[in-house]
Design a binder for these strands. Structure first.
Lengths: 233, 233
DNA sequence: TCACATTTGTCCGTATGTATC
DNA sequence: AGATACATACGGACAAATGTG
């Protein structure tokens, strides 16, 4: 009796460009190649790996989409090692949600639950530096408002800083991802000046509650903040 | 004064293969092309888009890595539209966490907080069908144990079913992502038979608490279950 | 401003591997 | 077992972009 090969052999698809991309990826993940490093041009990579240029290009496409490298054309150009890979994951998840016809309400509900869990952790773990960064963020946002500008990025950054104060990198990535998706979902109608002003006001109050160690008030304020964002559609 | 081009022109979509992949991706996202559909072979796609085969191939690489299509070789093969795009995002996040040197403790903490939030929602939203699916899952796991096999996938699936019972697609994706990463982090030491048996026991108790509407007990059991998994390293 | 070198982007022709009928 | 249809891979060629002198 012949062994069913689907049981034992789905391990290798034997595609050369995958092999090449995996080799380069490992060099980056293991830190041999560091952010900012320039890889050899396509032709030279082909010589070193003993493969054609087309194969190299397909490997580079994979690495580029995965966020490991960026590519610049022309003199002095070529593939460069990038530092962050979160953005591309956000992009893929965004399309995954879109395909699954995920509603805005679902995203808001998920965002609220996660940020509440994060905030709860922040109360136990935040240090002086974290508080300081949050204060600077709010101060900058208020400054921009005073100048008549919308502190859109600062308003977004506040939530990232909160996640960082939880001292858990997973939360930073999750909050970044979900909030980006949330922002994209309602991007057709950007918030008005009054709305952003309301966000900053809430952020200031959350920060006060955090300093005053008033956990329940902070959680309630965060909920109001998120619902405020939801209604901005 | 010359306008800084980084302010206005980061829109560059000058690359043909990006254009091609975007066009095909939109057809899939908008549902014109549905899961299981077979796309024309590379040569024909090249003719329709008026581009070369290499350009088509690079576009297909992007779509493949993004999880929108899979590619089969040989007669009757070609690019096929896939249904789920979550797996690739998980892969990218996994490497992102790895590069950021995220610890197992951080992943476990994040997983626990999210699953507790999800379980809390499940108490309000789960219907009869959800309970039934969870019961079937536990029954199958117990059955495998009785046969002396490790119900590894079932033990994983239980948490996905819980997320689905929350009726929020975002949670399904998040739980799937984090749990997969958690599993990979401890994959060097797979759980023993006794451990998996312990998981299933906890799952059964959580299900009982869910049916009995004992929210606090269910949350406590979930915490025990997750900590049990952590200790299996 | 004008070449000029470097490197990616693109196309074509061709050959080989692979899965199905 | 052989023909077919498809992806995979190579090499050559030229265009386009980009920085240098």
């Amino acid at each position: 009796m012949r062994v069913n090969k689907t049981l034992f052999s789905p391990v290798r698809s034997k595609r050369t460009f995958e092999d090449v991309s995996l080799q380069v990826r490992d060099l980056i993940v293991r830190g041999v190649l560091k952010p900012g490093d320039r890889l050899p041009p396509e032709a030279e990579l082909g010589e070193q790996f003993h493969v054609g240029r087309q194969t190299v290009r397909e490997a580079l496409r994979i690495l580029e989409l995965s966020g490991f490298i960026s590519i610049q054309k022309g003199f002095g150009g070529g593939p460069f090692v990038k530092d962050s890979t979160v953005g591309k994951a956000t992009d893929i998840l965004w399309h995954a949600f879109k395909m699954a016809k995920t509603s805005l309400a679902e995203v808001v509900a998920a965002r609220l639950l996660i940020e509440k869990a994060v905030l709860n952790d922040v109360f136990d773990r935040a240090g002086k530096e974290d508080i300081k960064k949050l204060q600077e963020n709010v101060a900058k946002a208020k400054d921009l408002i005073a100048k008549g500008q919308k502190p859109f990025d600062e308003s977004f950054e506040f939530h990232i800083l909160l996640a960082k104060a939880s001292k858990n990198n997973v939360f930073v990535v999750l909050v970044e991802t979900i909030n980006t998706i949330h922002r994209r979902l309602r991007s057709q109608k950007p918030p008005t000046f009054a709305m952003v002003k309301g966000f900053v006001k809430k952020h200031e109050q959350i920060l006060e509650a955090l300093i005053g160690k008033d956990r329940q008030r902070a959680l309630r304020l965060l909920e109001e903040d998120t619902r405020q964002i939801r209604n901005s559609r």
